[in-house]
Simulated assay, not measured.
Amino acid sequence: MDIRPLQSYSREERDRLEGTGYESPKKYRVAKEATELTTTIRVELIDLDEPYRKLWEADPDELLSYEKMIRQGCSLGCYVNDELVGAAIAEPQHWNHTLWLHNFHVSDKHRRSGIGTELMNRLTDVARQHKFRAVVLETQNTNFPAIQFYKHCGFELEGIDLSLYTNSDMVDGEVAFFMKKKL
């Protein structure tokens, strides 16, 4: 395993690493209660009767935006026999001294082998070297496996956006979670 700065991210590599989506046996149910004096947002882990399946929607501009981020020098790739098996595509946010992790994937056949943890640890090292105060990412309340992985790596839930994807995210059941690892 060789972790080094990512130089490019091709469509083929993206398709191999990211696949077509994810499946989750659990999710975090999000509820909001508001009165004139208080607003409470409640997050509760629940088991699902049927696994939640999320299919990625193709974004034609995605690879172009990743290429711009990669050129900023904070993205990493993990290679086994010179094949990209993991990628962490990150963008410096100088205005608030954070490193924003836009994309983090390990190929299916290399998951649960320690590659993801090592890749995240190395990304944290990159953030420290650049004097960032935190690594930040966004995921969905429905992606229980990813949330568990991020927690394992030291991230905490720091924010929720109830309408990032649509105006009916809470009704539809997919809410944006913002997680942060303070350095």
Rank of each mutant, 00 (worst) to 15 (best):
Asp59Trp: 08
Asp169Pro: 10
Tyr150Gln: 06
Leu99Cys: 07
Asn81Gln: 12
Thr117Gly: 04
Lys180Asp: 07
Glu118Thr: 05
Asp59Tyr: 03
Pro92Gln: 12
Leu101Gln: 04
Lys182Ala: 14
Leu183Glu: 13
Asp61Ile: 11
Glu13Tyr: 03
Ile41Arg: 09
Gly173Thr: 08
Leu162Gly: 08
Trp100His: 12
Glu83Gly: 01
Glu23Met: 07
Glu118Ile: 02
Val43Ser: 10
Tyr165Ser: 04
Leu137Pro: 02
Leu48Asn: 14
Arg4Met: 04
Pro145Ala: 15
Asn121Ser: 06
Ile70Ala: 11
Glu67Gln: 14
Lys131Asn: 13
Leu45Met: 07
Phe149Arg: 03
Val30Tyr: 09
Tyr28Ala: 11
Ser24Trp: 02
Glu12Asn: 08
Tyr9Gln: 00
Gly159Phe: 06
Cys153Gly: 06
Arg112Tyr: 00
Gln148Lys: 12
Thr35Pro: 04
Gly21Cys: 00
Glu50Val: 13
Asp108Ala: 02
Val106Asp: 00
Tyr79Glu: 02
Asp2Lys: 14
Glu33Trp: 10
Val30Asp: 05
Asn81Arg: 12
Leu84Pro: 00
Phe155Cys: 02
Asn96Leu: 12
Arg122Asp: 08
Asp82Glu: 09
Leu76Asn: 01
Phe149Glu: 06
Ala58Asn: 08
His102Asn: 08
Tyr9Phe: 04
Thr124Pro: 11
Arg128Cys: 04
Gln7Ala: 07
Ala31Glu: 08
Ala87Thr: 00
Gly159Glu: 05
Ser65Phe: 13
His130Met: 06
Ile89Trp: 07
Arg128Asp: 04
Thr124Gln: 15
Tyr9Asn: 04
Glu118Ala: 11
Gly173Leu: 10
Thr117Asn: 07
Ile89Met: 03
Asn167Thr: 13
His105Ala: 03
Ala146Ile: 05
Thr117Phe: 02
Gln7Arg: 12
Lys54Trp: 11
Phe104Trp: 00
Asp2His: 14
Met69Thr: 14
Asp108Trp: 00
Leu183His: 12
Leu157Ile: 09
Ala58Gly: 08
Val175Asn: 14
Gln140Ser: 13
Arg11Ile: 07
Ser65Gly: 13
Ala34Ser: 12
Glu91Met: 13
Asp161Cys: 05
Phe104Met: 01
Ala127Trp: 02
Ser24Ile: 01
Leu6Lys: 00
Ile70Val: 07
Leu123Asp: 05
Glu62Thr: 14
Leu137Asp: 01
Glu57Ser: 15
Ala88Tyr: 01
Thr20Glu: 01
Gln72Gly: 08
Lys32Val: 10
Ile70Tyr: 07
Gly19Ser: 02
Leu17His: 00
Val136Tyr: 11
Thr166Val: 07
Glu62Cys: 10
Thr38Leu: 10
Asn167Met: 12
Asn141Ile: 11
Gly114Glu: 01
Met120Tyr: 06
Ile89Tyr: 01
Glu12Arg: 06
Asp2Tyr: 04
Val135His: 06
Gly116Leu: 00
Leu63Tyr: 11
